[in-house]
């Protein structure tokens, strides 16, 4: 095999391939020639200071905004180009996203929140004549178990605490049975104990799922991270293990400010 063929073969194993991504708002480059590859079953953590383009990157993957240039391909083998698809189509491919601020249906019960997230036919007419099957109920019970909310199943989601909403949203992601999970700051607003449990949950998902986690909490990152990508001014600054990255002077400089000038 030539090197090029090897690269091709390698590329086929990526679940997400982003190449040459650019996005600017009013002339300000938020994403700058970004290249990122996520392996199948990988748990990748993205860190970076505020304004590094982390959330914008997720927006680009999920179709919330369109890149000015560049490609985003999903799936092993022949990738599907995501850049021209709408949010719900991308989601149906198996990409689920948890938002920075927990986004649940505050007027519905916990159970209904999960029910609506189940990976079933999402067409309007299917929804009109949908009846929940025993399998559906079992699946929801299972998820409730996983996110430890079994006894809260009939509570209105709006009445949950911030941390509980975060968990519920993760549960909703699980219900969608995604191949790739995009998780934006899952530990925000959680107690230390909750944070640790969240870490465990994410780690248990890795392998069977691919995950991209954006996080600020370095303790949490240390807990979950195998491979860390540092984003700065819309491009990749460093990539590697957490120790490798944390000891890098450039990363330290970006995070802590202009040390050299002092």
């Amino acid at each position: 095999m030539s090197t090029q063929e090897k690269a091709e073969a390698k590329k086929k194993e990526f679940i997400l391939t982003c190449e040459g991504l650019n996005k600017s708002f009013d002339g300000f480059k938020v994403i700058n020639d970004l290249n990122l590859y996520i392996d199948k079953g990988e748990l990748r953590t993205i860190i970076g200071p505020n304004g590094a383009g982390k959330s914008t990157f997720l927006d680009l993957i999920t179709g919330r905004i369109r890149p000015d240039s560049g490609t985003i391909e999903f799936g092993p083998g022949e990738g599907v180009a995501l850049t021209k698809m709408r949010e719900y189509q991308i989601n149906r491919l198996g990409i689920s996203r948890k938002f920075q601020t927990p986004s649940v249906y505050s007027d519905h019960t916990v159970y209904d929140n999960l029910l609506m997230s189940l990976n079933r036919n999402r067409g309007a007419f299917a929804a009109l004549f949908y009846r929940e099957s025993a399998a559906d109920r079992e699946r929801i019970d299972e998820i409730l178990e996983t996110i430890r909310m079994t006894e809260k199943r009939s509570l209105i989601a709006g009445s949950l605490s911030h941390g509980q909403k975060q968990w519920l949203e993760i549960g909703m992601l699980l219900a969608q049975e995604p191949k790739l999970l995009l998780v934006d700051e899952p530990a925000a607003g959680m107690t230390d104990e909750e944070t640790e449990r969240t870490g465990e949950l994410l780690l248990s998902l890795a392998g069977s799922h691919s995950l991209i986690v954006i996080e600020h909490d370095m303790v949490f990152v240390r807990q979950i991270a195998t491979k860390v990508t540092v984003l700065h001014q819309g491009s990749i600054l460093r990539e590697g293990t957490i120790d490798h990255v944390q000891s890098d002077p450039k990363v330290v400089e970006v995070y802590l400010g202009r040390q050299h000038e002092k």
């Binding site: 999920t62 709408r86 949010e87 719900y88 989601n91 149906r92 689920s96 996203r97 938002f99 986004s103 649940v104 249906y105 609506m116 997230s117 990976n119 999402r122 309007a124 929804a127 909703m172 969608q176």
Partner: peptide, 8 residues
């Protein structure tokens, strides 16, 4: 949230 749950 609905849109990102696969509903048009």
């Amino acid at each position: 949230r609905v849109r990102f749950s696969g509903y048009s």
